[in-house]
Design a binder for these strands. Structure first.
Length: 152
DNA sequence: GCCAACGTTGGC
DNA sequence: GCCAACGTTGGC
């Protein structure tokens, strides 16, 4: 059982969208380090849904991994901005996961609040200049984030 | 809108 | 294999 933080721009796809859809393929990741984390996810893992490029950025809720090693369909879709001409169905380059909605936090945890509570070493998202869109989180840090979400 | 950070591309 | 140019992310 592992814990993750996954970023999405709410203008593109928000936790409200996931609440409506319940399940969604986490497509469009085109960074190898992030992809490798996606490939190491297993069904039942927990992920924090982080809203990036919004005011304020922060953790909006919780989801779980419901399907692992999903081939990202957008890599074969020529109409998609995520189309990858170098990827073939026989040897797909981009794997991801399906996520399932768990809950939206009543208490949205802003990036500033995360910075007040965590060091960049233990929670990479508070590190200045961090651009990784999928990152692992230790169980201890995950528990502290959940405690923050239940406060106030 | 600015810009720091940093990943990717391509010439050599 | 190096590295400059370029593109993208994402906070502010």
């Amino acid at each position: 059982m592992k814990y993750w933080l996954m970023k999405s721009e709410p203008d593109v796809y928000s936790i409200d969208d996931l609440e409506r859809d319940l399940d969604e393929i986490w497509d469009g990741v085109r960074n190898y380090q992030a992809r490798n984390f996606l490939k190491s996810m297993t069904v039942g893992d927990t992920a924090f849904f982080y809203h990036s490029n919004t005011k304020p950025p922060g953790i909006a809720g919780l989801m779980k991994i419901s399907e692992e090693m999903v081939v990202d369909p957008t890599q074969f879709d020529q109409a998609s901005k995520y189309y990858d001409a170098k990827s073939t169905p026989a040897d797909p380059r981009w794997h991801t996961v399906t996520v399932t909605y768990i809950e939206t936090f009543e208490h949205y945890i802003s990036l500033n609040e995360l910075k007040d509570n965590f060091d960049p070493d233990e929670l990479q998202v508070v590190k200045r200049g961090n651009r990784l869109s999928v990152m692992p989180i230790t169980e201890a840090v995950a528990k502290r984030i959940l405690t923050l979400a239940k406060s106030e």
